[in-house]
Design a binder for these strands. Structure first.
Lengths: 196, 196, 196, 196
DNA sequence: GATGAATGAGCTTTCATTCAT
DNA sequence: AATGAATGAAAGCTCATTCAT
C-alpha cells in the first residue's frame, strides 16, 4: 500500500521537477552550460546531486528543456500581443515592455548564453533554427508593416529592423546587472530606434 | 654559433606569443572561458599543447590578458575620438562606427563572454571595475552634455544613457552572427535612441 | 483486529522472501553480482525497490544466500544419489542427468558467475572452500574408485578426474544458451570422458 | 622540433597501447566488464587513470577490442590447423591442445565473461554472432565429417557435437583456477567424448 | 625552444541504501 | 508492511598542467 496515492505522488514529482528546473535556470543563466556544475544546481535547489538525475537524464537535457521553454514562451507572448487591439506602436510597446520585465531576465540570459557559445548540444541549435528568426519575428512583420504604412515606424526591411531591435534588447538585458546600478531603460527609450 | 642574435630571438618570441594570443581570442570569443580547451587554442594557433605554457602561465592568465587588452584599446579608441574636432553627434557617430567595425567583433564577443559569466577569475572582475563604467563612459560624458545642451541629444542622466547605449551595441554585436544573414546596422540606426 | 494471525503473517513473510530471492536468482544468474542492480531484482519480483531491504540486509547478503543454497542443494543431491543402489556407471549417470536438468540452470549460472569473478564477498569464497572441492567430490570418490576397480571408469586420480568432469559440465551449461539452438547433450555423451 | 621522429613516436604509442590492452585483458578476464574499474586497469598497467583514455575511447571500447581480438585469433588458429596435413583425430588434437595452452587462458576467460553476461555492449553481441557459431565451427565441420566417415569420431550432427565440445573446453578452462591445484587435463582426456 | 605523452584533480553520472509517508 | 523519493559514495571520463625527450 503506497503511502500516497498516485495523484499526490504525481503532483509531488511535478513540484520537485519544477524546483530543480528553476534552480537550474538561475544557475545556467549566470554561469552558462559548461560553467555550471550539477552540484551548483543541486545546491541552489536544495536537493542532493543524485536527485536531479531522477528528473532529468543529463545536464544537457535539463539545459535543452529550459531553452525550449524559453523560446516557446517567447513565441507565445509575442503571438498573444499581436492579437490584441491597438496601434502598431502600442503593440510594439507592449512587447517591448514584456521583454523588459524583471522575471524574464533569467530566460534572456539563458538564451544569450546559448546563442554566444558554439559548443551547444545539437538539440539547442535545432530549437534556435525552429523558433528564433522565423517564428517570432514573422509574428510581428505584419504589425510592423502597418506601422510603416501609418507613418509610425521608419522605413526599411521589416525583418531586418525587427531582428536588430530584438538583438538590441536581448543584448541590453544581459549587459545590465544589478551591480551596475543603472537598471533597465523603459520601452519608450528603446522604441526610438524604430519610431519616426 | 647562434643563428640569430638576442634581438631577433626576442622578436621571434614575441611573434609566437601574439600568434597564440590571437588564436586564443578567436576561440575564447566563440566558446567562452570554460568552454575553451587549451587544445582548441593550440590547434587554432597551429602549435603544440605544451607551448602555450611557455608564454602564458595558465588558461586564466591568457584570458585575462586578452580582456585587459580589449578594455585598454576600447578606452584608447574612445579617448582618441573624444579629442577630435566635430559636433557631439559627429563624434558619437565616429565612436559608434568604430565599435561596429568587423575586426572588433572578437573583442566584443570576448568581453561579452566575460560579462555574462559569474565564474570569472578575480582579475577579470577588477578590470571591469577599473575600466568599464568609469573610464570609458566618463570620457564621453562631457561630449554628451555638450550635445544635450546643443539640443542634439535627448535629455536624461548622461551616464545612464551612455551606459544603455553601449550595452545596446555590445549586445547587438553578439546577437548578430553571419549565419543570420542580417548583418550589422549602421551607426545612424543606433543613434536614433540618443538623438532628438 | 488483525486480519491474520501470527502464523499466517509469518507464512506471508516467507513467501515474499522467496519471491524476492528467486527473482534475484534469475537476474544474478544472467547479469552477475555487480551487473545486477537492485532495481532489476525489484522489477523482476514485482515489488518496490525498498522492500528487498526488509528481507535482506544487502545485495551481497542476498547473493551469498543464493550461493549457499545452490551449494547446499548440490551437495544434498549428490549425497542422495550416492546412497542409491546401482552400478557406479548408473549412479554417475544419475548425477549427470540431475545436473543437466533445466531447472538447475539458474543455479549453475549463478555459481559460475561467482566462480569467474575475483571480487566476490569474502563469504562466497568461504562457501566455495567449504563445499566445492571437498564435500561434493568426496561424496563420489568411493563410487568412482569402485567403478575403476570394476573396469568401468578410466584410470587416474579420482579427485582430479571428477573435478574435471564437473568443471566440464558446469562450463557446458553456461555456454549453452537457448539462442544457440543446440540444447544440452545427454548424460551418455558426457560420460564418455570417464568411461573406458 | 619534436624530440622524437614520427616513427619512433608511433612505435612508442603502439607499445603503450598494447601495454594497456593486455593489462586490461588480465583484469577483465578476472573481474568481468562491470566488475573492472578503470583504476584497476591503470594500476595493472602501471599508468595513470587518464592515460587509458588517450588510447581507448571508453571502458567498453577497450573491452570490445579485446573481444574482437580474441575471436579473430581463435578463428585464425582454427583455420591454420585445418589447413595442416594429418588425420582428423590428429588435427582435432592439435586444436584442442592449442586451446588448452596456458597463455590462451585470459582470452578464454574474457570471452566467457562476455558470454555469461546479458548486459554487454551491442558490439560484443554482434561480434559473437559474426564469429562464434558460424565461422569457427564451420571451419571444422568438414574435418569432423571426414573423421566420422573414417570411423574415428562418433556419429551425430557435426555442428552440434563440435559446439558442445568447444563449450566443454571453454567452460573447463574457466573453472580451473591455479588455486584448485588440479591443472588442466590433456587433449586425450577431452577428446574421449568425440572419439569412438 | 618545442613536442605531445603523462598525470590527477574534478566533474558527470549511477546506484546501493535509507527514510518519510 | 510497503512504497518510491532522496541521499551520497564511488565510478567513468575530461582536460589543465607538467615533464621527459
Amino acid at each position: 500500500m503506497p503511502p500516497l496515492n498516485e495523484e499526490q505522488l504525481d503532483q509531488l514529482r511535478d513540484e520537485r521537477r519544477e524546483q530543480i528546473k528553476y534552480a537550474a535556470l538561475r544557475v545556467f543563466a549566470c554561469y552558462g552550460l559548461c560553467g555550471t556544475k550539477m552540484s551548483m544546481i543541486a545546491c541552489e535547489a536544495g536537493v542532493s546531486q543524485g536527485l536531479s538525475y531522477r528528473y532529468f537524464k543529463s545536464k544537457d537535457e535539463l539545459f535543452v528543456e529550459l531553452i525550449e521553454e524559453a523560446m516557446r514562451e517567447a513565441l507565445e507572448a509575442v503571438k498573444y500581443v499581436s492579437e490584441q487591439p491597438g496601434t502598431p506602436t502600442e503593440l510594439m510597446a507592449m512587447i517591448t515592455e514584456g521583454m523588459l520585465e524583471e522575471n524574464n531576465k533569467y530566460y534572456f540570459m539563458l538564451v544569450q548564453q546559448a546563442r554566444t557559445s558554439e559548443n551547444m548540444p545539437e538539440r539547442v541549435k535545432q530549437i534556435f533554427e525552429q523558433y528564433s528568426n522565423q517564428a517570432i519575428i514573422d509574428q510581428l512583420v505584419s504589425i510592423f508593416i502597418k506601422g510603416q504604412d501609418a507613418g509610425e515606424f521608419i522605413a526599411g526591411d521589416p525583418q531586418q529592423l525587427l531582428f536588430w531591435y530584438f538583438a538590441l534588447i536581448s543584448g541590453l538585458m544581459l549587459q545590465v546587472q544589478e551591480s551596475d546600478g543603472y537598471g533597465l531603460p523603459n520601452a519608450t527609450f528603446l522604441m526610438r530606434v524604430l519610431l519616426k
